[in-house]
Amino acid sequence: MISLTVNKRSVKVDVEPSTPLLWVLREHLGLTGTKYGCGVAQCGACTVHLDGRPVRSCSTPVSKAAGSEITTIEGLSPDRSHPLQRAWIEIEVPQCGYCQSGQIMSAAALLEKTPNPADEDINRAMSGNICRCGTYPRIRRAIHRAAEMVKGVA
């Protein structure tokens, strides 16, 4: 049994320590907001946070996540009220939607560290997340918009 903290909830899962975190999230915990893309940490669709840092859960063994705060897209806010979620809806960022959970999780980690990111910061933080639909310009705009919202609230 491995003990995990997922979205502030303690859970125990009966899996091999080498099982990818993504499998545990999706198959054992039913948190299917996190997506499987390439399986080799190239596309970013499976991005979740470990203690606030963005990691590719497809290539992270579950044993490495034990003891950390794991946050998935489901844990970003209880009611879609996270500034990024609001900005995403306002700007209608998604096209097919598959990569978007990963995009939002990477963006959330960026905004935690850099509340007012320049385009260069966005390029650096977001280049690990592929979007085959090419929603990049709207992702960029939505990150700037979310940063404005955070400033407005603070």
Partner: peptide, 17 residues
Amino acid sequence: SNFYDYQVIRMSEAPEV
């Protein structure tokens, strides 16, 4: 076989449209 040998456009290369 995957995105490491089949590169696609990423955020840093995406133009403003």
